[in-house]
Nucleic acid binder design. Sequence first.
DNA 1: CTCCATAATTGAGCATGCTCATAAAATACA
DNA 2: TGTATTTTATGAGCATGCTCAATTATGGAG
Lengths: 178, 178
Amino acid sequence: MQSKRERTRARILQAAWNLFQESGYQPTSTRQIARAAEVADGTVFSHFSTKLEILKAGVQTQIKQVIEQADASLKGCTPEDRLLHYARHLYPFYAEQAEFSRELFKEILWHQDELRPQIEAFMFKLFDAPVCEREQVYGQVLMDCYFMTLLDGLGAEEVSASLMQERLTQKLACFTSK
Amino acid sequence: MQSKRERTRARILQAAWNLFQESGYQPTSTRQIARAAEVADGTVFSHFSTKLEILKAGVQTQIKQVIEQADASLKGCTPEDRLLHYARHLYPFYAEQAEFSRELFKEILWHQDELRPQIEAFMFKLFDAPVCEREQVYGQVLMDCYFMTLLDGLGAEEVSASLMQERLTQKLACFTSK
DNA sequence: CTCCATAATTGAGCATGCTCATAAAATACA
DNA sequence: TGTATTTTATGAGCATGCTCAATTATGGAG
């Protein structure tokens, strides 16, 4: 059985997630979260160091599932096909949770000690072999396109995953057609 | 002669810029700025809607100069050469003002109504002709590399403009060598 | 100069994210 | 069981960015 601490943490996370979904991340105050979770204001921060960490915890469990799904159904041999495959799974998720994604990327961009390993792992999946120097750089270019297309799409007033996929497809065509 | 309002604004901007340089953006409070500019707290916000707007105003005048310099000395014919040319001018600036750049990009990324026109203009400079469909997409890919290399570099603990230039050069080589 | 309307400035006050000394609860050990 | 120690929880309090009703300065018309 989970310890009392774990249960309190879960309550906070659940309450926060509900409120975030209902009213958005920014408009939800940590006091509201505390009240909804029936704990004191300070308790929230004894479980999560930051308001953003709460969001991160919530989103990460979801994203993990999406990635696992994508991993499981991975088809295509070329790195480009595979990148598109992941985009088809992940873009819709990011798009649906646009505000959360924006908030997270804001922070995470500057802490690539968190992002970098994920990117490395991602590149391994694209080439599924220890990548050589040349492939490494090309992989970076692919990732650049993947991320910029995503960031760009998340900034639009009408966030559309399909538009993002289309854009990425066009960009990737630059490489394969030459 | 500039109106009193303009002079107050200038005083605030100057005071803010000094403090930002001295102690950084985040550690400087708007109250400190007000005190240094010898105005009331509220006055600051009657001239700038947001703390970030102050920073933006300060940085933009500087960046304009750097861009003009780059424009004036523009050499090279291929889009890749030109992109690198701009990188050689702009990366060092962003790197030197790393904290400011990070703070600004955080916000600006999601308001591409501010960023988009600048990017469009930038692409025009790269191709110096009304770009066709195909070039448009390729230009986007170039920009993606330009920005991701920049963002990536700004996130490192040791921000190095020359490293960023090197990385961008490598990426661009993917295109020209094929 | 005097009056008045408009523009600029003021600073008390608000909600926020987060801290930290204290209190309560759980646990370990006798 | 009873006591000591460690782990959790508490909530008053802090500094922050920003607001807004009230106040003061500005400058133009009579």
